[in-house]
Write a protein that binds this DNA or RNA. Sequence first.
RNA 1: GUGACUGUAGCUCAAUCGGUUAGAGCACCGGACUGUGGCUCCGGGGGUUGCGGGUUCAAUUCCCGUCAGUCACCCCA
Length: 448
Amino acid sequence: MAQGALPGFRDFYPEQFAERAYIMGVWRDVARRFAFVEYDGPPLESLELYTKKSGDEIVGQLYNFTDKGGREISLRPEMTPTLARMAAAKANALRKPVRWFSMPQLFRYERQQRGRLREHFQLNVDIIGEPDVTADAELLAVAIEIMRECGLTPEDVRARVSDRRLLTGLLRAIGVSDAQTPAVFGIIDKWERRPLEISREALATLGLNDDAVAKIINVVGGQPTLDGLESAYGEHPDVRAVLGDLRRYHEYLEALGVGDWVTLDLKIVRGLAYYTGIVFELFDAKGELRAICGGGRYDTLLGALGGADLPALGFGMGDVVLAELLRERGYLQEHATLAQPDFWVASESEADRRLVAGVATALRRAGAAVEYALREQSVSKQRKASHSAGATYFVTLAPDFATNHRLTIDAFAETASPTLAELVGGQPTIERLVEVIREHPQLLSSTL
RNA sequence: GUGACUGUAGCUCAAUCGGUUAGAGCACCGGACUGUGGCUCCGGGGGUUGCGGGUUCAAUUCCCGUCAGUCACCCCA
């Protein structure tokens, strides 16, 4: 038995690489259309960059080691610290708002399970320097447009949105003390992973009275609306201010054409991390998979990491869960196809083989993907090989090709109309074929 | 890090109660079909049954360990 890849790591055979290339192509294309520009940083960073943000307990989940210069370093487990470092170094020179995206491979030393490996590719999209909720709407729209571009609909994927300030304000209005608030956040974060009774008991254990517990369960566990929250808690100034922001946020999401995808859901708190405002996660609508994407606003993080004190927001979207969802729907099989040759050029004799190479070169320089037999084979064998390779056209040199440049073109799986043969005409020559390809590059599958 | 389940060819699976040289389909390679053939026919390569140990006359089969995979915790990208 051959040695496989290390646990949690993947080999990308051409079939899998095609899937990865498709997903990353969608990421890059949608980000570009939203006028985000791509950046990258080093895959290795100083260990301190991560402990500064997350504490020493993070080290257990890092691929960290001491390098030959005695430096404590780690493979990057996330992109945000690198982004913060890079943005801080040029904070004053960057045009605001900064709209950057990256597609790093990230590493985390954890036991693997479904949707979670020790390595993955993650799209990171961030906006730096804009405090208004219009930026939050723009950011979420990027994530949702990626779903759309992949062929998914609001019936497949839901964007669940919350706001840490709103939740904090509501808890205050309900009578939760600021000291109790972090613990309540922790309970809400685990809400969906355990029975309601456990959450109810946990809240009661904090010393909250029955009325407060009931209100929390209603607000968090129910299906809150902005209007409902307004009428119930709108009197409280902390709530009122945030509700106004959220209304504008939803108006922008509607204007951006993604309102149908979004649900207000106060159970989304994104761990106990560094988020300060609107937070969101994208889930498959059936709720079978892990989150596809998560993000939000982290206005204090860049300053806390020693960089520029700029408001910022961003999301991360991993390739693993997205690929699972797309595979389940059959979309990956549809889009992530292996590149196949446009032409297979066949020869009938050893003497023809140099002519075949010349024909291949002419077609290649015209933009086509061309393969031919690298050793002498019967024509029937070459035809079989061309099928196997998935070639669209099978070109055979005429016996007197050397003098008249004539060839025959058989189409195997041609979908074009008019067909290549029709465009080339009755007496096809290599010159005519090259001419037609240059005029009609859409005939070539390799350019799609 | 904890627990449960599962490991036979590249893939999907066989192999009677523990019993002869571990088989088949697909895939791959070669040959025939001297030309519409993504066909058909013939042949071939490929396995230390994940690995190590134990019980037994005999282990793919039973036991232990280990590695790997899957799932659930933990935690989160």
